[in-house]
């Protein structure tokens, strides 16, 4: 039950994109078509879940154990970028089609602030290992959800007659605002 709440909280009520403003760059940049948005979401979910686990270990067994809180940012970003690199290599070895689908997105993920944001939230929330993993997975699912919804709307929008000054980024931001309003309807349903 607890774990379900962690999951729903991370994916819906405190959606990383729409409520926490994490991962806006890919949200605006890679959301033109549903398939690409979905692949990006999958890659991000994978990295989020796994780095949630790794970060938990780094925080618990290195930073806290040796009293090095001030190295947190440096350590986390290094762990994440190293991890993304490893994932890229592993995916390439394991499956060629999967690499083709996800590969190009992986390098982008290092600078996705949703990942570092997730990493920094885990120690703040004091989650256990299992909770951290679920939290990372939920965050990834929420990210994918927002990406795919956005891409779906933008695909439709391509045929709409948008006033010229609003074309491109402005219109995308306004749609995102409306999605954020819709997601506000979920807030308060789950007390964090």
């Amino acid at each position: 039950m607890e774990l379900l709440l962690v999951f729903l909280g991370a994916s819906i009520t405190n959606n990383f994109i729409l409520a926490r403003f994490l991962g806006i760059c890919p949200f605006l940049g890679v959301s033109k078509e549903v398939p690409t948005a979905f692949s990006m979401g999958l890659a991000t979910t994978f990295v989020m879940t796994t780095s949630a686990m790794v970060v938990w270990f780094v925080q618990t067994f290195i930073l806290e154990k040796f009293g090095l809180p001030y190295l947190q940012y440096v350590a986390f970003i290094l762990v994440i970028s190293a991890f993304v690199q490893l994932t890229e290599m592993a995916v390439r070895k394991i499956s060629e089609p999967l690499y083709k689908a996800l590969g190009i997105f992986l390098p982008l993920i290092t600078t996705n602030c949703a990942i570092l944001g997730l990493a920094l939230l885990i120690p703040l929330k004091g989650y256990s290992f299992i909770e951290s993993t679920i939290f990372g997975f939920g965050a990834g699912v929420g990210f994918t959800l927002a990406m795919v919804l956005m891409a779906g709307m933008r695909e439709r929008l391509a045929f709409a007659d948008v006033p010229e000054p609003l074309q491109g980024a402005p219109m995308t931001l306004i749609i995102a605002g409306m999605m954020a309003m819709a997601f506000m309807g979920f807030s308060g349903m789950i007390a964090m």
Binding site: C25, P165, A169, G177, M178, A180, M184
Partner: peptide, 28 residues
Amino acid sequence: PAGAFLTMGIVLAIFNVLKSGSTSEAEC
């Protein structure tokens, strides 16, 4: 949060009008 997106979108649109219609694309 919703207001952040809306305000930014509207401000960008106004700037686009000021720059006489040159539109920019979101790329990171």
